[in-house]
């Protein structure tokens, strides 16, 4: 009986979550940049232009695939829309030393932060990486996506472009 309740509530929650809009501002959590300086996540901004926040880890293959795929078009997309990508690594002391070496050797030009004890991940309700959020010029979370499949980056690019033009974004 208990099991039935848990399963049915999980299903109900899933169905309702489809209708939920993400909404809301960025929560407050402390992350560190690659110089070791602490930054509060609620101060992330991009001068009224959209931001992408992508949670990843050095040990997560799909995360790196996604960030590589975005990187190929990033310079062009930035020129066109002014978007900025903030990559949040959830690596802990086991692999946090690898964040800077991965970022540099892959040639990523993203703004990178380390969320070593996953406080920001928790505040953003991220279950698993990769998880990517789109934030509009007013700092509202307007879209999010969990996991990565080939082609997901194109949906993200389209949504960024729609956001800049003020069109409704697709889910």
């Amino acid at each position: 009986m208990k099991q039935l309740i848990v399963i049915s509530s999980a299903i109900i929650l899933t169905l309702t979550s489809f209708t939920f809009n993400n909404g809301g501002k960025l929560p407050s959590a402390t992350v560190k940049n690659l110089d070791g300086t602490s930054i509060n996540s609620n101060t992330f901004s991009n001068d009224g232009k959209p931001m992408i926040i992508s949670f990843w880890a050095t040990w997560c293959k799909p995360c790196k695939k996604e960030l590589d795929a975005i990187n190929e078009e990033y310079a062009e997309l930035q020129k066109e829309t002014g978007v900025k990508l903030i990559a949040i690594s959830i690596d802990d002391a086991r692999s946090s030393g690898k964040v800077v070496t991965d970022v540099k050797s892959k040639g990523w030009t993203y703004e990178v932060y380390i969320d070593e004890n996953q406080d920001f991940k928790r505040a953003m309700n991220v279950n698993n990486v990769p998880h990517t959020f789109l934030i509009d010029g007013k700092g509202e979370i307007v879209w999010s996506h969990n996991s990565y499949a080939e082609g997901d980056e194109e949906i993200l690019f389209e949504n960024v472009k729609k956001l800049v033009k003020g069109e409704k974004i697709s889910h």
């Binding site: 002391a93 030393g97 800077v100 991965d102 050797s105």
Partner: peptide, 17 residues
């Protein structure tokens, strides 16, 4: 005691722990 050192530049990196 744990220690690590790294060097990273565009396209190349080295990490020792």
């Amino acid at each position: 005691l744990i220690a690590s050192t790294s060097y990273a530049t565009n396209g190349f990196s080295f990490l020792l722990s």
